[in-house]
Design a protein around this nucleic acid. Structure first.
Lengths: 227, 227
DNA sequence: CGCGAGATTGATGGTAATCAACGAACGTGG
DNA sequence: CCACGTTCGTTGATTACCATCAATCTCGCG
């Protein structure tokens, strides 16, 4: 690992408070790798050999069974993923695929487990990370079970828009659709149904002209939407 | 807390490996309480004052927004719940309600956080518990997004049936419906659609006469269904 | 200028929620 | 012990929501 990368990694919340010796022990045998878009980083049911930390780009977590597939989450920097599988030394429950070019730090699972046992600061950070991940899952489950697609989209727009009410999509709409748990076709339709509430689309820019009306439609909820 | 309860609690996975002093520090200020069915133990958006450990009975975790409500999980002994909220000292994302008469150990959140910081064995147990909870959530999300109601029911039956193919429901069907994420009406219909695969209902007993056929319909998956 | 990937629109079917009505089981009180 | 009433479960009809398939459109780029 290069020195610039090393200090960037050291600054991550997950590693910031641990001792230098612990950091050394974690990083030994780790590697930082860049991937092009569309690469499968890991596959569900494989054994959890590496903790992954996303430093740049975006990664999709997905799951499949019986010929069907669904996106569970989209990960943005800086975040670890599949931490739970690594800690328990179990198989992955999800696959991971790069959406964009991505830089990923891969840490051998046994390093994580070993250092976890001896460095309380690292243990605390791990628990924090894991608790955040758990709560994210609960929010996602609520978002999905309690709201329609159009409502999920409306709430996403309210969070993503800048003060002027504009949302600049930095990825394809199909990715947004997956992130929101719907098909691209239904995202189109959902955007159309939000028209009467002041939502207009022009290429990759979505404009929210009457935020208050959209909010009344969306019923935003701090216990679901990330603050 | 009575001595018999004390030793039962001490034997729980979460507390088994910690030092006696740590256990003492956790238990001080905790209380063990019995509740009748239908009691709301905690409400979403309240601050996480107590870690709850279910010792007897069953508890439903549910979430509501915009006038809608859904069951997220049903908890059976012995399990803790809302651990993540307590560790992060945040508000609860879910409400909890007793389904049956239930005995619950309530531990002040600050005890948990304080002992977590000083007892590595407890920290490890907490992480284990949390990782299991996280993976449970992922399984639930997959179960819900990748399967129809009838498929969820079929897989549940395959896991719940005894070697003779019988499932004795120990709760009302409406509870099972909530657990499976559907309405009571649709549970009735789902049971009916499983008829051709050898599923018959008689009161509170469901019999699976042709497990192999049911399995072909259900597509059981170790990455979703609890083993 | 034309190709092709992504986006949109339309039509259709499947899944499940809702509303309503009915039936069965069970406990209570007469 | 029976009559009644409540609760739970089932069944039917309707509607909402979403996936799928297919066709068309748009726009960026060679």
């Amino acid at each position: 690992m290069r020195d610039t990368d090393r200090s960037a990694v050291r600054a991550l919340h997950l590693f910031a408070d641990m001792t230098e010796a612990s950091f050394e022990a974690v990083v030994r045998g780790s590697f930082l790798q860049s991937f092009p878009p569309g690469v499968e980083l890991l596959r569900q049911s494989d054994t959890a050999d590496f903790l992954h930390v996303l430093l740049d780009g975006s990664v999709e977590l997905l799951a499949a069974t019986a010929g069907r597939e669904t996106t569970i989450a989209v990960v943005y920097p800086v975040a670890s993923f599949i931490l739970a599988a690594v800690l328990r030394d179990r198989t992955y429950l999800m696959s991971a695929r790069t959406l964009t070019r991505a830089r990923v730090l891969m840490i051998p699972g046994q390093n994580v487990r070993a250092v976890f046992a001896v460095d309380p600061a690292f243990a605390a950070a791990v628990v924090d990370e894991l608790a955040v991940a758990f709560r994210f899952m609960v929010r996602e489950l609520k978002n999905h079970k309690l709201r329609t697609g159009a409502e999920r989209l409306a709430n996403w727009l309210l969070l993503a828009m800048d003060p002027g009410g504009a949302v600049h999509l930095e990825f394809e709409k199909r990715v947004l659709a997956a992130r929101l748990g719907m098909t691209p076709e239904n995202l189109s339709r959902a955007l159309a149904t939000l028209g009467p509430y002041g939502v207009a689309v022009s290429g990759r820019v979505v404009s929210v002209t009457r935020p208050d009306e959209l909010r009344r439609f969306a019923h935003p909820d701090p216990l679901i939407d990330q603050v």
